[in-house]
Design a protein around this nucleic acid. Sequence first.
DNA 1: AACTATGAGTGGTCAGACCACTTTGTAATT
DNA 2: AATTACAAAGTGGTCTGACCACTCATAGTT
Lengths: 214, 214
Amino acid sequence: MIPNNNSRKMFLEIVKQLRQLIHDENIAVGGKLPSERELAERLQVGRSTVREALRSLELLGIIETRRGEGTFLSDFRKHQLVELLSTFILQDVKSKKDVHTTMQALEKDAIRTICMTDVLHKQSIWDAFLDKLHEEVLQEDIIREIIIISNNRLALKIWFLLKQFADEPYHSFMNVEEKKAWKLLLTNLKVGNEQQAISYYNEWKLLTNRGEIK
Amino acid sequence: MIPNNNSRKMFLEIVKQLRQLIHDENIAVGGKLPSERELAERLQVGRSTVREALRSLELLGIIETRRGEGTFLSDFRKHQLVELLSTFILQDVKSKKDVHTTMQALEKDAIRTICMTDVLHKQSIWDAFLDKLHEEVLQEDIIREIIIISNNRLALKIWFLLKQFADEPYHSFMNVEEKKAWKLLLTNLKVGNEQQAISYYNEWKLLTNRGEIK
DNA sequence: AACTATGAGTGGTCAGACCACTTTGTAATT
DNA sequence: AATTACAAAGTGGTCTGACCACTCATAGTT
């Protein structure tokens, strides 16, 4: 229960336990964490050790501290940590390509899952999406909805994380051709035609890659 | 020169200065940084403040510390962020089913990618794998190889991470039936027959889920 | 009722003390 | 002379206690 062995790095253990604590106490974004002194006592470590863990999470943008007030869980999906880290990490083209490839894997799987599940593709929501195509619609909005409906929250979260590293097609509006591909995709989706749906997905992907040189 | 104002967050300043120091002294990857005590004196701050900055960089994977030896600049291209953030993301995902589903999405995509790419499926390595099936072989070993060959390092990283949360089929050896399914899978894989390969993949998945109640 | 002062609570920083571990140099042994 | 054993120095890991600066609620004053 108490891994206070010396060989292990205690501050990493505290990071782990903080994660657990946030989950157990159901602390929401913006919520307040226990004070450093209280954490030290509860976790049976010195305050400096707690601080090392907290400072690490702060640099990551996971928490936010305000002197005199306390430590708060922050919305790390927004903050600039992605920019900070991307300068170190996903620099080379190969990595960016991996991001897109992996996102496509998740997207296709969502489509396939929906096609194979009666209760999912036989929903009236697809007609609502088809209507939406007459308005201005962002590429990412409709895809996000599809992944949501596929009912894999983990995949959704990973996809959401990756999207912040991906730049190209997701933040733009659809043009006429893309809307056409989506119309065909959705039409096949709502009758559970996996083959055709994936086929039109691939067609859409070819369209969004306009201008990109690989 | 010395921003020891109280309003500013000192440890963030130290992070900045450490980056400057690494640049100025031209410390290469694997090189040694000054000791914590020396840094504290040179930067005119307490050792604990230096440590908070160092621990942050360590959690980011930018530096590496070895007790008794010192602090070293590490290769930050092996990004730790996906692991870190994903573990924080995974906290509120209760269902392990999502983990399995997502892993399967990555696995299937690797198989499909290989089938669709001549240079990948027309490799002699598949014959080597078929030979291996005569020995004791772990489920995860062969899948890992497939994802590696699909040449998406990000997907591999995510898959590897998820595997730590998934216990069921991956850590066990194959039985006779599973080997049979794999044999058929690999046979179709090496001729690029995507449909059949996926089909036998699904068959294998049914086998590994023996005893599991969903 | 509005304002002020005070104190409790919180994060920010520092100094000093051990501990555990690695390396290195030196003394003892062979 | 070579090897071994041991002691010391250096390093990161952790804890403690002490201030400081700041925020906030509240008791007290006007």
